[in-house]
């Protein structure tokens, strides 16, 4: 069995978001780039599955669509334990374009499980994973909080409103994963960092594909009014304010 984990290169989640060029692009000045948190958890789970598989899972690959500056993120994934990596050398124009590029590579390599994070922490699309499944015409399960392989059967837990569903799924599939898929992301070991340098990283150019959407510009939320402080001895006042002023009670 082979697993592919899709990675998005995103600004560190504590980044103070700013825009430039008349609010038409993200200001990356001084920004730290990281593996999208959900993708990092997906990679962690993929490696756990491989280690627990008695050799059934032979390979965990990672892929990203991005220019050369995304390479530290790819190398980090290799240092964490991925066996090899793919980078499609292009700006990820939109989700449709990005998913198409990943699907093109996946078609050649026939992975059994493709992991994608539920969304990227920058554009919050929640799109790429499920789009890949449609391009490949394979099944997809979203909101996945656990994946296990038992007797060559893939068992998936899906979050639903107010509960969980347990599913058996036939490979190949795309699992769009969220919190719970792994508890803590793995941290690269010193040995991992050393071996990452020599692991295969295949760089290819993008295949022609239209993008269907474009980001025109950005805006920051309106600053909130000042917080009204209420004395801890007078919580009745709070109740009245919520009722009469905020009108939420």
């Amino acid at each position: 069995m082979k697993i592919l984990v899709c990675l998005s290169n995103v600004p560190d989640t504590t980044t103070k978001v700013r825009f430039k060029d008349n609010n038409t692009s993200f200001d990356a000045n001084g920004v730290q780039w990281i593996i999208n948190p959900w993708d990092e958890l997906a990679l962690t789970r993929a490696l756990e599955l491989k280690e627990g598989s008695n050799g059934v899972i032979t390979n965990v690959s990672v892929i990203t669509v991005g220019e050369a500056f995304a390479e530290p993120t790819i190398r980090k994934a290799l240092a964490i334990g991925a066996d090899n990596a793919y980078r499609v050398n292009s700006i990820p124009k939109d989700a449709f374009f990005t998913a198409f590029q990943i699907a093109e590579i996946a078609k050649k390599e026939s992975f059994d499980i493709i992991f994608a994070g539920i969304e990227s922490s920058d554009y919050n699309g929640s799109m790429v994973g499920s789009m890949i499944s449609e391009f490949l015409n394979i099944s997809s399960v979203s909101s996945v909080s656990a994946v296990n392989i038992e007797n060559n059967e893939i068992k998936v837990t899906r979050e639903i409103p107010g509960g969980k569903e347990f599913l058996n799924v036939t490979a190949p599939l795309v699992a769009v994963v969220q919190k719970g898929i792994a508890i803590n992301p793995r941290i690269p070991s010193m040995r991992g960092i050393m071996t990452a340098r020599t692991k295969p990283l295949t760089v290819s150019e993008a295949v022609a594909c239209d993008s269907l959407t474009e980001f025109v510009n950005y805006e920051l939320p309106q600053p909130k009014g000042k917080c009204k402080m209420i004395s801890a001895d007078n919580v009745k006042e709070l109740v009245q304010l919520l009722h009469n002023e905020a009108k939420v009670l």
């Binding site: 939109d94 989700a95 449709f96 998913a99 539920i118 969304e119 919050n124 699309g125 929640s126 799109m127 790429v128 994973g129 499920s130 789009m131 499944s133 449609e134 391009f135 997809s140 399960v141 979203s142 909101s143 979050e159 639903i160 409103p161 769009v176 269907l212 959407t213």
Partner: peptide, 24 residues
Amino acid sequence: SNNLTGKAIAPRLSVKLKAGLVSA
């Protein structure tokens, strides 16, 4: 809806119909 179901289906629909998708 941008809920669990919408997030699961809309991207597949987007590819099927070659229709640009905006979420959230």
